[in-house]
Nucleic acid binder design. Structure first.
Lengths: 256, 256
DNA sequence: CCTTGCTTCTCACGTTACGTTAGCTTTTAC
DNA sequence: GTAAAAGCTAACGTAACGTGAGAAGCAAGG
């Protein structure tokens, strides 16, 4: 009595491909109501309702196998299932949020400085990628409030800061090979610390504190957490420059 | 000179699986610096930098093939690529937002009424799923401002409304078989229109307007857009009840 | 030198939800 | 009756690895 649809008609009506329907048939998710002796599939109104469920549950992010269970096994705890699914989807969304934020940062940087060093770019992305772990790692060495202060900057400031640091790093990389004690290099370092001071005024105290722990903590297993945008040689050179900057500062501060 | 890592060490250091490294080798994305005559892979610091890039770009959502291009082909238009990627990710996020919203609605409904009719549940999900198309479809028959008014309700109200309608539908389904002109059924219909009136006071004018077009528009091809939570028989019964409600209303309104 | 145990190697199939031919048969339209 | 349209099965392709299976390399101890 009820209307029969060929697979093509049914597919069009349902807004789904023929292949998908055949696949659902194959995995016993949605069997056509009637099959001719020659193997043609015919669908009825009932099938529309069934497909409706399938499509809806698919929209909610369930895999087909789960959908099969949900439809065929009754007395499933729908509420629990939905809550679980919600959590999953929210996690995914949070991941996407971080990805988009990383992209925003990168694009912001590209607008400000139209040239960009690949290594610095990657380090920037990595920082956002591993932000959570980084935050935790930081709290091993810095007081919690300091960490909060840095990471909870308003987004725009954070981006600008990142950008300025990236810019400085670029200049430092370009200056590699120069005398590490040259005024230019030292001025760059000063700029770096000036930035740090704006964000966290007690930077120097922290640094000195850190220096005492450094020797033992450097052996930490996965020290890969902090990918430096500098090559090993550049880093060596940087350490020299830093050392000099450090000594000079101490001199001028305590000229006793 | 530089340190060599076996694949196991390297994997641990990089926070990636051995299988992934072998796969990257296979697709020429990341070749180990050195391979022993017996086939063992050894990685160096250089490889760490390369892997860094790969992982970062993967985080940004690029497929490995694209990453291969981005790394090996130089002079890629990074900015354009990033902007494109950003759009993609934002789209994905918007999809997730709709999914989560649908889940929220469903969960809200489950809390309010602890029992739930599967068909109504599916119809609800479907509505959110196809919200965009539905909105467009609506504007074919209703004035734009009316549509806006309904769809741009504050989220909470929208949810409550959906919930009340679902609840009413449940009761109507349960009443199927009763005389369609019974006071109870008619009262349910009245409740339904009362809800509509709150949202859009000119509901009745719209309906009458619609009735004139109905006959020609009902032949629209994919009328599956609006999945009814009612079975064909139930719908037939509903139409009867509606007709009666309609007539009665007209009588009492124009008792001339 | 042999054994034990750990690491690594190369296939090769499994995963998800279909898309996409290829080659053939059935149905529909004229 | 014939041609075009629609349907069929079978089978491979996709993305990024996970997961064995079975063999081989490698360091240490006896």
């Amino acid at each position: 009595m009820s209307i029969q649809y060929s697979i093509g008609e049914f597919a069009k009506k349902a807004g789904i491909t023929i292949r998908a329907l055949r696949y659902y048939d194959e995995i016993n998710l949605l069997k056509p109501s009637y099959i001719t002796p020659t193997g043609r599939r015919f669908y009825t109104e009932d099938n529309i309702m069934q497909l409706q469920k399938i499509v809806s549950l698919k929209f909610l992010g369930y895999p087909l196998e789960k959908i099969h269970e949900l439809i065929h096994l009754q007395n499933w705890d729908l509420q629990e299932s939905l809550e679980f699914q919600r959590q999953e989807m929210i996690q995914k969304r949070e991941h996407l949020n971080r990805v988009i934020r990383a992209l925003d940062h990168a694009l912001f940087m590209m607008e400000e400085q139209n040239t960009i060093d690949a290594n610095i770019f990657m380090a920037l992305i990595h920082n956002i990628h591993k932000e959570e772990e980084q935050k935790e790692w930081f709290t091993n060495y810095f007081p919690k409030e300091a960490v909060e202060k840095i990471f909870d900057l308003p987004e725009e400031k954070y981006m600008k800061l990142n950008n300025e640091i990236a810019s400085l790093f670029s200049e430092l990389k370009a200056a590699y090979g120069q005398d590490s004690e040259s005024p230019y290099v030292q001025a760059l370092l000063k700029q770096y610390f000036d930035l740090a001071l704006i964000i966290y005024p007690e930077t120097f105290e922290l640094m000195e504190n850190l220096e005492n722990q450094e020797i033992e903590s450097i052996e930490d297993e996965d020290m890969q957490l902090f990918p430096s945008p500098f090559s090993p040689e550049e880093e060596k050179w940087l350490v020299q420059a830093l050392q000099y900057y450090w000594d000079k500062r101490r001199h001028s501060n305590e000229p006793s």
